[in-house]
């Protein structure tokens, strides 16, 4: 009974929504010209990066805070802490992972650098870094994490703190997160570098802190 009601409601909802989509009037607000006009003053030449780190810097700042909170949530759940041991994995697999992971770090740095003028940026670079860590863990080269050490804690929070520091430094000049056009490019690159590093650690941590709660064997 419940199944039928839910399916009928879902069907009705999607039909109504699709009908609305097809009849939608033209949007009254178009932000594309505003983005294009201010691109020269934003410090980067790629519009998506400009939106993420300049026009809508708030979102990105709060996003990294949310990620950090999610990681705290996982740590606070108190997974059963047991020592994780590295098991013997297949040698060719390990060799492949050893070859691939430095390349992935290079790709991450390239993505970070290229984000200024073409698709790329801190998020993608951080994701590639995290993927490299997961790959190393799956081939038994990198143990899972139990408790974050002091250094790791700084690494996890560093991107957020750096971003927050730059944002508050801008407060002295007038508004939060309003970069001077002359230095915007360098500041964005600095923030993005911190974000990439911390994002990589946080996203890897989401996996590596959780994977250890079994205690292996």
């Amino acid at each position: 009974m419940k199944r039928l009601v839910v399916i009928a409601a879902a069907l009705a909802f999607s039909l109504a929504l699709i009908a609305t989509l097809l009849e939608l009037p033209a949007a009254t607000i178009d932000l594309r010209p505003a983005v294009a006009e201010n691109l020269a003053a934003s410090g980067v030449a790629h519009p998506v990066t400009a939106v993420l780190l300049n026009y809508r810097g708030y979102d990105t700042l709060l996003e990294i805070a949310v990620l950090l909170l999610a990681l705290f949530g996982i740590l606070a759940l108190g997974l059963e802490r047991q020592v994780c041991t590295l098991r013997a994995a297949e040698r060719p697999l390990q060799l492949l992972a050893r070859l691939a992971s430095p390349l992935m770090v290079v790709v991450a740095v390239y993505l970070l650098w290229a984000g200024a003028w073409r698709p790329g940026g801190a998020f993608q670079a951080g994701a590639v870094l995290a993927a490299a860590a997961v790959l190393l863990h799956l081939t038994e080269l990198l143990p899972g994490w139990l408790q974050p050490s002091a250094r790791l804690r700084w690494g996890l929070a560093g991107g957020f703190l750096l971003f927050l520091g730059v944002a508050t430094a801008m407060l002295a000049r007038g508004a939060l997160l309003e970069y001077p056009p002359a230095h915007a490019g360098a500041l964005i690159l600095l923030i993005e570098a911190g974000l990439t590093f911390s994002l990589g650690l946080i996203l890897a941590g989401l996996f590596l802190f959780m994977t250890c709660d079994e205690g292996g064997d």
């Binding site: 998506v48 939106v51 993420l52 809508r56 979102d59 990105t60 998020f123």
Partner: peptide, 14 residues
């Protein structure tokens, strides 16, 4: 349109 694209990029990571 770069604005929703940037929003969605943030959304995927969250």
């Amino acid at each position: 349109d770069p604005v929703p694209q940037a929003m969605v990029l943030t959304g995927i990571v969250v």
